[in-house]
Simulated scan of single mutants.
Amino acid sequence: MRVELPEPSAEARAHSERLTALIRAEIATAGGALDFARYMELALYAPGLGYYSVGTTKFGAAGDFVTAPELGFVFARCLARALEPELADGEDIVELGPGSGALAAELLLELERLGTLPARYRLLERSADLRARQRETLHARCAHLLDRIEWLDAPPSTPWRGALVANEVIDALPVRAFALRDEGLFARAVGIDAQEHFVWREIAADASLQAAVERVLGKRAAHLPRPYLSEVCTLLDPWLDEVTRTLERGSAWFIDYGYAHGGYYDPARHVGTLRCHYRHRAHDDPLILPGLQDITAWVDFDALARAGEAVGLRVAEHATQAPFLIANGIDEVFAQGYERTADEATRYALAQQVKRLTLPGEMGEKFRVMVLRR
């Protein structure tokens, strides 16, 4: 997928070069080939240098991509209606990766209108820069509810009840990349060429990767074309255990783009699902612009369901985004928003928002909602 990308500023380029130097040093320490999962971790989360560790604008029109809450209020108001039964006794909401704070603000406002505010709205955010932006958003949009809001550095350490919300979070977990070839299974790693550019390398798969790939592919591996490139998120199981361990009673809501029912490892999907986002351009080269672009992999919802079962959670709901929003009142949310404004430009923008959230070619079928319950 070749895409013309805007040229970074001199300051952004210098920042990327600092992260590049750090990654080069790790590649040298690793003997010339750094497993892609470690490369992705550094590119996204290296302290002070990774994409999510610095204060550049990432979300919305001025950033690199737009999430559903950044489009407007429709998504959050529908989600609030779905969450309402979970909060009947004043339980908590814990949001993972709260981004700009837009989802938190709109959820709180809609739950207030519905008369079902959570006792606490807790945002798990480690980035100081993103925390600052979230505080700014929440102060501007729902200052009267700030006494219910708190920030966490880690998942709650004591038992709690309510709803865990993770919108477009799992896609940013580092994944291990692999290649199936006639000669066998290989780990895809990152090396350096003669021009000091990052390049793909393939090395023998270690026992951990072999076990992970065998677990997700099983007998299907024999029927996949060669070569076949894909990814497996080996962090998913321990991560889910960590973020839900103290959820005593309630539900965990995961909204992300992904595949289910065996579709992740479809024979036609032979180049994997890695996607990068830079200034609203999507492409598939994670080895360029380290620190300046988002790197994601589509979510294997079958694996998420298995991970949930392993930690005592059951799948309570699983649907693509369009039917989920329809079941949770998108028609009423749209009608109310339409009636409350006479501005034709605003009405048009609202209609476009609904289309983007629900149409098959947009988010309607690409995004899925899975609810795990304890």
Rank of each mutant, 00 (worst) to 15 (best):
L5K: 14
P6A: 02
P6W: 07
S9Y: 02
A10T: 14
A10P: 11
A12T: 10
S16E: 03
R18I: 11
L19G: 05
L22G: 10
L22P: 10
R24P: 09
E26L: 07
A33S: 13
L34H: 10
F36Y: 13
A37Y: 11
Y39C: 10
M40P: 11
E41Q: 15
L44R: 08
Y45N: 03
Y45G: 00
A46V: 00
P47M: 01
G48H: 07
G48R: 12
G48N: 09
G48L: 06
F59A: 04
A61E: 14
D64L: 05
E70F: 03
E70L: 02
L71G: 07
G72D: 12
A76G: 12
C78F: 08
C78Y: 13
A80Y: 08
R81N: 06
A82C: 06
E84M: 04
E84C: 07
D89H: 15
E91C: 11
E91P: 09
V94A: 01
L103F: 07
E106F: 08
L108E: 03
L108T: 07
E110A: 14
G115Q: 01
T116C: 14
A119V: 06
R122S: 04
L123V: 11
L123P: 14
L123T: 14
S127R: 03
D129M: 01
L130N: 03
Q134M: 02
E136I: 03
E136L: 00
A143T: 01
R148G: 04
I149G: 10
W151H: 03
W151N: 11
L152Q: 01
L152S: 00
A154N: 14
A154W: 07
P156S: 08
R161G: 05
A163I: 04
L164Q: 07
A166K: 12
N167M: 05
P174S: 12
G184A: 11
L185C: 06
A187E: 08
A187I: 00
A187N: 04
R188S: 10
V190A: 00
I192L: 06
E196I: 04
W200Q: 13
E202K: 01
E202Q: 05
I203K: 10
A205C: 12
A211V: 09
V213G: 04
L217H: 07
A221N: 10
H223Q: 15
H223W: 02
P225T: 09
R226D: 02
Y228W: 00
T234K: 06
P238L: 10
W239P: 09
L240I: 05
V243M: 02
R249L: 06
A252I: 06
W253T: 06
G258F: 07
H261R: 14
P267F: 09
R269F: 13
R275S: 04
H277L: 01
H280W: 06
H283S: 12
I288Q: 13
L292A: 08
Q293G: 02
I295F: 00
A305C: 10
A305Q: 14
G308I: 00
R314N: 08
V315T: 13
F324A: 00
A327K: 12
V333I: 14
F334W: 15
G337A: 03
Y338S: 11
E339F: 01
T341K: 12
A342P: 05
E344K: 13
Y348D: 15
A349P: 08
A351M: 15
Q353L: 05
K355P: 02
L357A: 11
G361E: 06
G361I: 00
E362C: 07
M363E: 05
R373Y: 08
R374L: 03
